[in-house]
Design a protein around this nucleic acid. Sequence first.
RNA 1: GGCGCUUUCGUCUAGCGGCUAGGACACAUGCCUCUCACGCAUGGAACACGGGUUCGAUUCCCGUAGGCGCUACCA
Length: 505
Amino acid sequence: MTSQPVRVRFAPSPTGPLHIGGVRTALYNYLFARKHGGQFIFRIEDTDSNRFVPGAEEYIIESFRWLGIQFDEGVGVGGECGPYRQSERKAIYRKYVDQLLAAGKAYIAFDTPSELEQKRQEIKNFQYDARTRLLMRNSLTLTADEVKSLIDGGAQYVVRFLIEPGRDIQVHDMIRGEVVINSTILDDKVLYKSADQLPTYHLANIVDDHLMGITHVIRGEEWLSSAPLHVLLYEAFGWQDSMPRFAHLPLLLKPDGKGKLSKRDGDRLGFPVFPLEWHDPASGEVSSGYREKGYFPEAVINFLALLGWNPGTEQEIFSLSELVEAFDLNRCSKAGAKFDYVKGTWFNHEYILQKSDDEIAPIFDKILKDNGIDEPLERVKQVVSMMKNRINFVHDLWPLCQFFFVPPTGYDEKTVKKRWKEDSALQMERLTEVLRSVDDFSIEGQEAVVMKYIQDNQLHTGDIMNAFRLAVVGAGVGPHMFDITAFLGKEETIRRMEQAIKTLG
RNA sequence: GGCGCUUUCGUCUAGCGGCUAGGACACAUGCCUCUCACGCAUGGAACACGGGUUCGAUUCCCGUAGGCGCUACCA
């Protein structure tokens, strides 16, 4: 089709931490760019001075660093089309606003917020458009002199886009096909705000996408309704021939109820909705993040990629580069996807399995150190190797297998009831003697001696081993017994046996 | 309310006129086994509804209903 190199962008607004839905939008843009050998641009849309949150921009950058998603151009990266922060592009927007004004495609409006509010009271379903604009105080109803004196007198004003009614506007969406909306239902959107002398999203977005050579706009479905306005804006500037292609992604929905996934849902259901932990500078509130919860960035990306897109094969585990290879906008779904965070933990589990013990051991070692355990890394690795197939997160290990490092401080009541029989103390005393006699305390060495002892004395393997486990572990869980005792060593094993016999009797 | 998007197992989804409607997560059962897991096997579980078009609709069209989004001097 077009030989033009692909250029896409992710353009968040620094109003807080990056939402997980935003991460997915960014990911799809990234995948699309890489897939087509194009550029991925990072722009900050800080045109709402009221909602600006300090630290949000840094947070967003840090998030993508953690996720391993790299930008080719933009804030913090640089590039030919800067500045990439909209608050630093005021003069540019002013120029284009004036251009629209001069061409009669936009007009100046002096209506104050309270005047607008009053109109909304008076007229039901009030909308600032062709039907009502002549009722308002604007450069269409005022004389040029009146306008000039108002402005000179310091009156606040906005610039509104003049929309001609009665026209069907077509939006070609790469995911949804042709979407047609009649211009009559559109209102004369504010393009330029008096409050902070900054453009609104709509104007800044179109101007920047044009100036930055954006070829494809991949964004959330919440923008679909304003896409016709954007098309009209491209036309008003005479940029229709270089207008980017649109793709509106399905939204991420609440796991249970209705509506868009929100921060509240995470708090309520106990999963993060932000990539990184976020400390709200105003309220001091802390929101959990995927990183701090122990997710691997690869798992988060893999999980997110498959929420709204599928490869058309049955493959589910994808590295980032495999995703780039497989990604295709045509295979995006149209309907919103409920956020299935349980599946997210499964992805993390898969990545734990995929990672080597060498990679996981240092992470667990840190947790051990936090719990006052200082073991050689080699031993930590042994435990990881025995335990990693049963966890979703590395931090699941400590509560699951601290018995490797700490002798039981108590004995699980249920297990005692079930496994510690009348003669268990006696049996364990005998077993202790057997263990004392074992010279080779390796897994195989112990097994050979102990199993022979059980057979020779016609004992029940289960009876012996379960009581043995209870004595050494303190509960009825864990890997094979001799794996545990070989790790603990003869001395520690016997010490635990004696302790259990003394305690349980 | 208006406008737009959307609708396959509980969830994510495959399907692009003819299939026993497939997979994954979750769930249940069984096997393995010294326990708990893992693993393996098995099972239950879906085409929103009503009209068309067609020899034949999950698939195409039109309605209805549900869901979602937008409807700010927020993005």
